[in-house]
């Protein structure tokens, strides 16, 4: 076996022995990282769900182009095709006068009796234009609206400018708060983890001393501690995922009724598989960074 192979075996064996030799310390490290990541994870769950909600609001962001009355059906279709080629337009639906009236009646509900007397349909036909996701900002919308303005056959444009601005602000706010809180949580977690691992390293300073005495380089002496830290972190991350899922399942039935009343279409989402992996990876990274900070400090002493 090569020298590198011998070293690898040594690292694997020493790391596992370290974890087995001090199960309490290992458990403390794992639960510290686990709890910290439950906080981070809960926050990111909240964030994903809020963003999901905003996305669904975003799907409703539309520009309505009212058509001149008496435009032949064939021309409406041609216009729709033309609008569909405008950059930033995702989808174009043609809404005829009759459809518009039907929708209006449906929307007004019981009060529709008032409309029954109308002899003539006062509502114009329109194109309902759904924007591509990247255009769902005030500026994005303006670009699209400018291309629509003055198109032959289009009489008027309606687009909830304030709506869009509110939406964009909400998204920016959620993302901003998310980044800020995420950063604070990550730093706090790192500090706590580094401290926990520092204690573990301190408890084993005799081992570091002897390794240094027999001529182990710093990286060599540190590697088993780093591997241990990363392993503990990954296990802590997995633990956090399990706890979060439990909480999610537990809390969901409690708030689902309220949510659907409030939002109608809200369907809370758990972390994606990618999100789960990221959380476990974050745990491993935290464990690694924490033990690196602790070990290199310990080796210097």
């Amino acid at each position: 076996m090569s020298r590198a192979g011998a070293h690898l075996r040594y690292f694997a064996r020493t790391s596992l022995r370290g974890l087995r030799a001090s199960p309490v310390t290992a458990a403390v490290g794992i639960s510290t990282i686990g709890i910290a990541l439950v906080l981070v994870g809960a926050f990111s769950l909240l964030l994903t769900n809020m963003e999901g909600l905003l996305d669904r609001f975003g799907d409703d962001l539309r520009v309505t182009a009212y058509l001149e009355s008496g435009l032949p059906v064939a021309e409406r279709a041609a216009l729709a095709r033309r609008v569909a080629t405008i950059e930033g337009v995702l989808e174009v639906d043609v809404v005829s006068e009759d459809e518009a009236l039907a929708r209006f009646r449906e929307g007004v509900g019981r009060a529709s009796g008032l409309l029954a007397e109308l002899e003539e349909n006062p509502l114009p036909a329109s194109l309902e234009i759904t924007l591509a996701e990247r255009r769902r900002t005030p500026e994005g919308m303006r670009v699209v609206v400018e291309s629509l303005d003055g198109l032959p056959g289009v009489s008027d444009l309606a687009y909830g400018q304030e709506w869009v601005e509110g939406y964009a602000r909400a998204v920016a706010l959620v993302r901003g708060i998310g980044a800020g809180v995420g950063l604070v949580l990550a730093l706090a977690t790192l500090a706590i983890v580094a401290n926990t691992i520092r204690l573990a390293v301190y408890a084993r300073r005799d081992e570091l001393e002897i390794l240094s005495l027999v001529g182990a380089s710093r990286p060599f002496a540190a590697t088993p501690f780093l591997v241990e830290g990363a392993l503990q972190g990954a296990v802590g991350g997995a633990l956090a995922v399990v706890i979060l899922y439990g909480l999610f399942r537990l809390i969901l039935p409690e708030i689902e009724a309220g949510l659907s009343m409030l939002l109608g279409f809200a369907e809370p989402r758990f972390l994606t598989p990618g999100g789960v992996l990221r959380l476990i990876g974050a745990g491993a990274g935290l464990g690694l960074a924490g033990s690196a900070a602790a070990v290199f400090q310990g080796l210097r002493a």
Partner: peptide, 11 residues
């Protein structure tokens, strides 16, 4: 064994 492991001798 520590001494020899640090020297990277095979198991």
């Amino acid at each position: 064994a520590v001494t020899l492991e640090v020297l990277g001798r095979p198991p």
